[in-house]
Design a protein around this nucleic acid. Sequence first.
DNA 1: CGCACAATTGCAAGCGCTTACATTTAGGGG
DNA 2: CCCCTAAATGTAAGCGCTTGCAATTGTGCG
Lengths: 366, 366
Amino acid sequence: MRASTEWVAIAYESYDLWGESGVNLTDSSDYLRGRAARTAPTLAEVAAIAGVSTATISRFLNSPAVVSGKTAERVRLAIQQTGYVPNLLAGALASNRSRLIAAMVPSLTQSIFSSTIQSMTDALFEAGYNVLLGLAGDHDEHVPAVIDSILGRRPDGLILTGVIGGPELRARLLSANIPIIQIWDLPADPLDMVVGFSHEAVGRAVGQYVLKKGYKSPFLISAGGVRALSRRFGFSRALLEQGFAEPPYVVFDPPTTTRQGRQGLADYMDSGGKPDVVVCTSDWSAQGVMAEIQSRGLKIPDDIAVIGFGDLAFAADLEPALTTVLIDGSQIGRQAARLLLQRAKGLHPDPAIIEVGFQIIERASA
Amino acid sequence: MRASTEWVAIAYESYDLWGESGVNLTDSSDYLRGRAARTAPTLAEVAAIAGVSTATISRFLNSPAVVSGKTAERVRLAIQQTGYVPNLLAGALASNRSRLIAAMVPSLTQSIFSSTIQSMTDALFEAGYNVLLGLAGDHDEHVPAVIDSILGRRPDGLILTGVIGGPELRARLLSANIPIIQIWDLPADPLDMVVGFSHEAVGRAVGQYVLKKGYKSPFLISAGGVRALSRRFGFSRALLEQGFAEPPYVVFDPPTTTRQGRQGLADYMDSGGKPDVVVCTSDWSAQGVMAEIQSRGLKIPDDIAVIGFGDLAFAADLEPALTTVLIDGSQIGRQAARLLLQRAKGLHPDPAIIEVGFQIIERASA
DNA sequence: CGCACAATTGCAAGCGCTTACATTTAGGGG
DNA sequence: CCCCTAAATGTAAGCGCTTGCAATTGTGCG
């Protein structure tokens, strides 16, 4: 694909000049060794300066309402003067609340979940929580290790995207005894709370849309994950129920890429396939499909129509604009954060299973 | 842009059925309240079962080499039997090592940094570290708050992308007394270690490339951040040095989107601009530029050429393939992780300023 | 078989906070 | 001006681990 490659002057000198392991090292054991290294001020020091007990400082920080005005002022000054930053590790240990929420996603690159994580992190941050990210791997290959390291941090809540796992994993998660939210799906057997939608319903809706539009020869480009497969399943069901044949499809390994879309359609057409619409389980592959169609001098949607999934930021601004399925990822994140915060307050949100729905966005491509 | 919108059946019933705040709540104070809620097994319990002291269990976990074989076996069993998960908060407090690395990025959505975070997180996880993500906001608006909450977790290292900040912020960061790595740039005045490249050099290289290709009327679409501005500056310099005029440009607020590219070019051309090449400070906007050009029935690169930045995953598979600047984000992440790990071992990597370079990838679009 | 030394293990003192409970101080009414 | 109650603050016991140091056990060798 790369027609040619030109190294830039400065790159000649610097790129990979030091290999990933060919770095010179100087031992200087004084740095970061043992506990002598850091000397951040502690509560006790601030308390001494302010002339109060450590308990008062702690209260000033955590429940300002209970300390008197003049004390508060002295404490404020002492904190400012010392540049005190509370040690949340110690606080978490003592209070048994870490103010940490763990979120597990397959991966970060090209992830459809990033808007969810973004909005969730923002919302939780407002409430004093930090998000600890766990990357499960595109095939969930790191799940057990990630779960263990995450649980070791004693998070106050867990957000999971598409982790199924066997009974032992479920047990391990449940034994943490913290709120768990599964997002981006509606599991048949939820661990706890859920914010998601039915992927099969999406597939079915897209199938009905395709039929309504009068397309006769759909071709499916699907990712290999369970959720994408559910969508494909729903799509096929919709067609079968109307007496159509099961549509041809190709399945690619995650993560889904633009190239897969291009490749998938190219291979299909090169082997004689003549689709009038290509349905993708991701806007990324849909984008590749569009490129492939155009590179063959065909017209979208007249010769071949294209449908994506996700309504990613770029979908509306392709040429032609991409017809796709909108999932409000930010809303999922906000809802998840909200449920978690409710639970942290000791409330039991009802319902604890929130179906966020989806929407087919009809644009020019199909 | 949305030609029409169709709600899917199931969506009618469920979408926003519960508003974001209209949820019924049941108080059940027994849940997650006070310290009675959790009863995870502790070191002491495991020790009792294994018939050894807590110190031995701790050693088994952290320096297995020093415990004898038969003891190790007993401990292993006890751990398995109890389902013990070490409380890393307590461990961190006691050892003054949190095994947490904080990473600050502007945002997650459409972020060019995601491959860096991904590879960094993976590499650090291997070594027993978790990554705590801090979202600074597209205009660094959350920096102070995020820094404080991050430092409170006592991370063992800090990774920063594009945080400048005044002297007081610098002081606060340095006072944490932990390794700091600034990535994706070469700051004139680094806090500590650096893994990045010169954005101005990128701009200059692109400028030279544009000249070499014989383009006469470039138009720039730039993001508003300091890094994108450096690239624009470098680009202009390259042209000015060769006696060309400063190229016209438009600057958009981050985050950079496909729409900005479309809009930017459309506005420029509608007001009479006749560029023969559009240079973008992001592949995202380049993608929008391409769509806009094609929607006007023009040819890429014959009528208007396009150059992007980032070599994001889709760039090679657009039609035509996008000429862009490759930055190896994964390598940045790995290098940063490596530096951090070296430092954690008490070594001082040399050099501590790593320039990763870049590469102009010539494809069909320019 | 006894001793020096190394390899294991145990003891116990924290790490820096939170919070139940006790104590002190402030405020109000009679 | 005193007593009662509420508000503010202090005391001190942990939270669950790590680790310096001491004690114990094991090993090799004379």
